[in-house]
């Protein structure tokens, strides 16, 4: 499913070149739940962004399902992100001016592969699944942080992605909500078979994964 080869990301700063990720090789088979752990600043979010097509690597390759992600043209990369990747950020990432149902439907509408009615039916179903069936018409500011995070998971799943990337999705949530969110992610991985990569610095969460990748100073240790 996922194959990273010599993946590197360097930033030019006032103090010179800083290597956020330095020559990582990583393979994650289809359907697996992998956790990337490490301290803050270890490079795990940067690695995740390169895997998800959000940040261009300085060197190396990322292949998802055999597709060389960073070899794609700009439009093809946008389509790849839209169709193949579901991304859950570590912050509230819903558009505040759209209703929950619109937020969830947005990726499918951008891709334009489904009819509008079909998309909205599916969006409503995903929100139901996340326990948000009563908030379809609500705006993000009208629901809690945990509910927003669940809505973001629903949005990530709208296009049936092959790869679900969750970058510290529970970092600012209470323990109970954290458990609920993790249960949702694990259910997606186990019931639908979506490959799940979770970035976290919470070892207890990581222990639920089938594969743990420990990163320090931009390299796998």
């Amino acid at each position: 499913m996922l194959a990273c080869r010599q993946l590197s990301k360097r930033y030019l700063t006032e103090r010179g070149v800083v290597a956020a990720v330095a020559g990582i090789d990583l393979d994650v088979p289809v359907g697996r739940f992998a956790a990337i752990i490490g301290r803050s600043g270890s490079g795990k979010s940067t690695l995740m962004a390169m895997i998800g097509g959000l940040s261009r690597p300085s060197a190396g390759t990322v292949a998802v399902g055999g597709t060389d992600v960073w070899g794609l043209s700009e439009n093809a990369l946008a389509a790849f992100r839209n169709e193949k990747i579901g991304y859950v950020f570590q912050f509230a990432s819903l558009l505040p001016t759209l209703r929950l149902i619109d937020n969830v439907a947005l990726p499918a509408m951008l891709g334009g592969r489904r009819a509008s009615a079909e998309t909205y039916t599916r969006a409503a179903g995903l929100l139901e699944r996340m326990g948000l069936g009563g908030y379809l018409e609500a705006y993000p500011s009208e629901i809690s942080a945990g509910e927003q995070r669940r809505a973001a998971i629903a949005r990530a799943l709208i296009n049936d992605p092959a790869l679900l990337l969750a970058d510290e999705p529970t970092s600012d949530l209470d323990e109970q909500t954290e458990i609920e969110i993790m249960d949702e992610l694990l259910a997606v991985n186990r019931e639908i078979g979506t490959t799940l990569i979770l970035v976290t610095h919470n070892l207890a969460l990581a222990e639920q994964a089938e594969q743990i990748v420990h990163i320090a100073n931009g390299a796998i240790v």
Binding site: G52, L54, E74, N75, A78, A79, F80, R81, N82, E83, Y87, F89, S93, L95, L106, P107, L110, G111, R155, N159
Partner: peptide, 9 residues
């Protein structure tokens, strides 16, 4: 965010 969820340029 829009770009991350697949919006074209």
């Amino acid at each position: 965010l829009l770009k991350a969820i697949g919006a074209r340029r």
